[in-house]
Each structure stands twice: as structure tokens, then as C-alpha cells.
Design a binder for these strands. Structure first.
Lengths: 215, 215, 215, 215
DNA sequence: AATGAATGAGTGTTCATTCAT
DNA sequence: TATGAATGAACACTCATTCAT
């Protein structure tokens, strides 16, 4: 089975392909054992290369952790961001973002789990991830749709709600309606009327393409 | 300096006191180095016992992790719960719980950090912690004050908001008003009017006693 | 076979005995493979303990290198120093020191080789070793027997002559008369007449006791 | 900056030039990190070739160590030897050799350090280096100027005195007069009168050309 | 109950060397 | 001839755990 990172670099040089294989293997290891418990040897073995090869591509374990975490966040963030380029309403955007984040994470559980596991340990990553949310929240405030103050606390709390939902979904503790439920809660917290919150949060949304081949 | 667990068992048998000393030492180690990185040797050394003694009290490292996590959660939960025995209004209770949780965690950063660090890895613990919240949320719904459905998703998301705020407080990324801010957001999410949410969330609350010596 | 360090601590506590066994093993490894090439695992294996035990006794490899080097230097230095406590004449002392150093190193080749190998890499050790020589050289100058200026250059060069002789002896490239030959050269360099240099350098000297048991 | 080995093969075939570049890089690495710690990769990188290329020129790491050590010894030995082709007196030659050896080593510290570091581990090299000294010592004995027996012990000890002085000079522990001081000691050891030893050892000597471009 | 020396599997990392291109 | 990705054995070091005292 070929991983997402590998699929992104098919046909390119060997170096780049091996690096991608390592990153895919890391995602799997991080998801299965957690970031701290995942060993470089296990990652290399999963990637079908020798442990020495790992160090031809990453200075140390920390480097692949960072590379994978940011790789995941950017990939998922970009996919969702692109998919809602034609949505203007901030409330719709927030709902869409929350629901698709959960959906994508569940669709590829390794990615979802690696994402959840890394976000609490990498502050830098948290900032990057919440930047997407922050933009939409500020847009909503500007448009007079959201009645809150957008500060670090709010943005991080908002993001953590999504992360928690992802975690529960992955553990099978909540069902597929979790995305809409959470979005509804969030919209109410943002100041929308219960009725509007419900309408927007439960509106059907399209399935995102899986892992678009090539650029 | 004597730790909280030790203070709880003063005057009792030696076995129970040594165990408490180990748990206090573990809290300190977990906070300083993280749970995974904390070594049994370091814990034993901090507790001023030999490493062998550790295994007279805990089957393995996992056992002390669990013991500490639950110990912290119960201690803090109980303290807050007791302090609001005379508050009837669900909204007031929720606000009080959120704000005091953050306050206590910040007051004893070791405990706060150990709490935050363990809650994401121990599902069992998460359940116990959120039981406190769940009771108040259900009371609010019963009383017609909260307009939501109290399910696992909601309770866990609600709890994670508090955890996130604690983390940000401990990292110094938000100030002392974070508790009230968060409580206000939560109350709005629960269906209170913005005005009421604000009034309740910012109402002064008493400082909790530090670590009551008797039960 | 029991090593010198071990023989020094017979009958004492287990900790101290294991440490001594490790040091004896290190001497052997250093002599056989050189200091850099000697591996901690090999030392532990030679000492018949697990590799983990090594780290119960030495913080890292460097620590045992230092411990062994200074241990050797002090042991040998002390033995020679003690043996010539009743020699007053500086020329006799210098000759005695040079000859016995070579003799002892040859008598226990592992020690000799470890000594030679460590002295070039540990400046601190070089200082300690040459302190013995320096004292006698200064005494000779004070007594008007030696006509030189005793500075760092001279002392270190003087010491290196002995080290070189030890190396050649250990490699079998020179015979047992090397000690006397070298002492004769050194005495001439120090300003003694050729005749006197020869007489002193070739005077029979007693065999030193091997490794005195207990203090 | 072009190294000494490279400068010797300018205008010759590519193969020979690459090899020289590798040797210059090795000198630099050896001096900076020590011979054991210097890695083939680092040498290749310094030489601006790939690590694979290294093995087109040297069977293994040991081979370049030897090549460099002998290259240095021959180059320096030859330069000094050539410079004193018109000196007949053995005492003058010995003094000149000692002083210039130290001077050259200090002038190009990389070379000096690589020389000092390799001479203790390569017996073959030691022989080659001391051959220069041996010739002059024997000449002095033949001429009746030196009153010693020239054997392996003496020659090696004599050489080690120079090596030690170089080491001290490179470490900044002795000043520029070390050459003359040492030469004076050596001449006295060889049997010269203190007055003559001093006169010869301190006589000004010419600065050697740096790295003659032609043979 | 307490000690603390000993264990040994496991970790991250390095590096000389090989080999397909 | 030159490249550089890949290899894998080896290394220093850690740490949860055991056990004789």
C-alpha cells in the first residue's frame, strides 16, 4: 500500500521518494504507538530501508516528527481550504472546516491519529493549524456574523474542540454525526441563533477528493 | 517541602506514607519532564527512597501514572465539588467549575501540568473528570437553563475546552482572565443569552483553600 | 586472573569491587585496542558484568578513561616515589625514576601500554606525571648537580623520553638495558660528566615489589 | 585555498589531482578532529567530491591515513634536508633539523598536528622520519663530534623529543624559542660542551621557503 | 519493608563501505 | 571516473525491572 506522501512524489527522483516513504512510515508508527514511543528503527523498517538510510534524510528523530506533523497539517489544511474557496459566508466556512477536518481525519485514521498526537506537543504546529480557523473567525466578526472577541484563547479552544471530536471519532466513541453536532455547538458559541446554527451545521456537504494524484 | 499526597496521609502507617511520597515525587517529575520521559529512578530519588522501594509500592511505571492521574483528578474534582455544594444554579455551577479548575491548575503548576499531560492518554481518566461536568450539564438541561443535548461528544468537548485553557495558562500564553472568558463562551454555547453569560462568568468567586489538611 | 585495581579493594564492598573490576578490564581493553577503539560493551564484557552495570559506576566512557589513567599514574608514581624515599642525590633519583618507570611498565604490559596511550591525550595527566620528574629536576638544580633551566618544555621533553623508551620496550624493539641507556643520556643532558652519568645509570637497582596487597 | 598536496600536482592528470585534493582535505580533518574521529564523508565533503569518489582513490580509510602521514613526513623531511645540503658540521645539522622541524610544524599547524598525531601509531612512519636524524647522528659520531652510541633507542628518543616540542608549540604551551632550547639540550646530550651547544643552538637560521612550487 | 547493585533489551545515532546509475 | 543513495554493524548510553541482602 502506498502512502499519501509517497503518492505525492511518484515519478520523481529516488531521494525524494525514499524520503516520502519514510514519512509515510512515520505517520503509521506515530499513529500506532504514539510519537515518543515510535522508534527510528521501526520507522525505517516499515519504510523498508535500513536504519542508516533514515539518517541520510533526517538529521534526527525530531526532524521527521516536525516534517510529518507539518506535512499533515498543510496537506489537510490545504485540501479543506481549497474546497471552500467559493464559500463566502463565515458561518458556512467554519461549519465546513470543522466537519471536513473530522471527516478527513477519520477517512485516513493514521493521519488523523498522527495529527491529534502531534498537535499537543508542537506549539508551532498549533499556531499554523489554528491560522486557518482564525482567518474565518475574524472574517465572521468583521461581517458582523460572529459576536465574540477573537484572541489566542478563543482560537486555541476552538481548535481543541475539533481535535477532541477527531479523537473521539477515531476511538469510535461518537458516530458520523459528530461533525455536525460540534459545528452546531460552535456556531451557537459564536453567537448564531440556535435555528441558524442547526440549519448550517447539518446542511449536506460534498465528500472531499481523497488524495489528489499529482499537482 | 511536603506534597499534597503526603499531606493527606500524615500520621498514618509508614507504607502508606512512602507511597504518597512516591506519588508526590511522580507529580513533580511528570510536570518537569513529561510522563514518558520521567524515569522510575528519578522519581524514587526525588522521593528519597531507593529504586527498589518503588516496586514495593507500584507494579510498574504505568501503575503510578494511573494512580497519580486519578489522584489528582479526584483531589481537584472533590475540592471544587465541595466548594460549590451550596450553589444551585447550573449555569453558576458550570462557570464556577471551569474557572476554579483553571485557577487550581495554575496555583499548583505541577499538578496542572501532570493533569493536562495525562488526560489525553487515559480515556478512563477522561471519563472520571468529565463526570463532574456531566452532572452539572444535565442539571442545567433538566432545569431548562441549557438548551443542548448532553452526550459523550458534548461532555468531552466541553472538558477539552477547560484543559486547553489550563495548558495556555500554564504556558503563560493567556492571562488570569482566561477562566471568565472561557466560562462566558461556554455559557453562550449552552444557550444562555450573551448578557447573562457575561454576568455570570465574570462574577467574582472566592479563592479556594489550598490543600485542606483534614478530610 | 585478578587485576591490580581489584587486588587493591579485596574484601571491601561489592560496589567498590565491581568498579575495580571494570577498571582492570578497561586497562586491558585500552592496552589491546587503544583508548578510542575500546568499547564500553567490551570493557563490561571483560569485567563480566552487563553493559548497564558500567553506567552504574561511571557516568560515561570518558570518566573511566580518566579514572584509569590517573589510577595508573598514581599507583606507579607512588610505588616508585616510595621506593626512593631514602635516595637523596638528585642524579640518583632521576636515574632511578627513569629506570623503574620503564621496568614497571614492562612488568605489567597492559598497564604500560594503557599508560603510554593515555598520556598523550590527557594534558592533565601529563602534568601529574611530570610533577614527579620536575621535583627531582629542581632538586638537582638547587643542589648544583644539574646545569639546566627547568621549564615546561624541559620537563615534558624529559618525560616523553621515558614514555618513548617504554613504548619501544613494550614493542620489543629495545632490550632490558634500555632503562640504563636512557638514564645515561638524560644525565649527560643534565650536565653530568659522561663518566658519572654512566656510573650512576648502570648501578644495579632493586626490583620493586609487584603490587603490594592491601594498604 | 589550495593545499600543499594539490600544489604539488598542478597541471597533472585529473585522477592525480583529485587524489591530492582528498589528501589535503584529510590533513585538515585529521588536524581538526583527530585521525580516528575524522570521517570519510567529511574528508570527501571538504575535498568537494562525493563519498563514493573517495573509494576510487583509496582502498579504505587506513590507506589515506598512511598516505597522508608519509606524504607529510617526506615533504617536510625533504624540505629540511634540501635546505641543509651545504651544512657539513653534524652538530649544526642536528640543530638545524630540530629547529626547522618545529618551525615548519608551527607554520602549518594542520600539517604539524597531523604529523604529531600519526607518528605514535605508525611504526613504519617513525622509522622513516628518524632516518633523517639517524644519518646526521651517525655522521656526528663518525666525525668524532658526538659521543654516543647511535642505536634504535637513541634515535627514537631523540625524535620523540622533537615531536614533543612540536606538540607543546602547537598547544601554545611554549614559545618560539623552544626550538633553540631543545636543540641546546640535545647537543649537550650528544656530548658537546655547554658553551658550544648554546652557541650552535641559538645561531640564527634562515626561514625556509613555504611550499616550493616546483620540485 | 527497604535497599541498591545488577541486568539486558532497547534507543538514537554514526560511519566505513558498497553499488547501481 | 564520478556520483550519492543505501547499507548495516557498531557505538554510547538509558531505563524499567529483578533480586540477593
Amino acid at each position: 500500500m502506498i502512502g499519501v506522501f509517497a503518492s505525492r512524489v511518484q515519478g520523481r527522483g529516488k531521494r525524494v521518494r525514499t524520503r516520502a516513504r519514510l514519512m509515510d512510515a512515520a505517520v503509521e508508527s506515530f499513529a500506532r504507538e504514539g510519537i515518543e514511543a515510535a522508534s527510528v528503527n521501526a520507522i525505517a523498517h516499515t519504510a523498508d530501508v535500513s536504519n542508516g538510510t533514515f539518517y541520510n534524510h533526517f538529521r534526527d528523530k525530531g526532524e521527521i516528527v516536525t516534517a510529518v506533523a507539518f506535512g499533515i497539517a498543510r496537506e489537510l489544511g490545504q485540501r479543506i481550504h481549497d474546497a471552500m474557496s467559493d464559500i463566502d459566508d463565515a458561518a458556512e466556512r467554519v461549519s465546513f472546516g470543522t466537519r471536513q477536518s473530522i471527516e478527513l481525519a477519520v477517512r485516513d485514521p493514521d493521519w488523523g491519529r498522527a495529527w491529534v498526537r502531534s498537535i499537543w506537543s508542537l506549539a508551532e504546529l498549533r499556531r499554523e493549524v489554528s491560522a486557518f480557523a482564525r482567518a474565518d473567525l475574524e472574517r465572521g466578526v468583521r461581517d458582523g456574523v460572529f459576536k465574540i472577541e477573537v484572541d489566542d484563547l478563543f482560537v486555541d479552544v476552538f481548535t481543541s474542540m475539533v481535535v477532541t471530536a477527531v479523537l473521539l471519532r477515531l476511538d469510535g466513541e461518537v458516530g458520523p454525526e459528530a461533525g455536525s453536532k460540534l459545528a452546531e455547538h460552535q456556531l451557537r458559541m459564536l453567537g448564531l441563533s440556535p435555528a441558524r446554527a442547526k440549519r448550517i451545521a447539518w446542511r449536506p456537504i460534498p465528500l472531499l477528493a481523497d488524495a489528489p494524484e499529482s499537482a
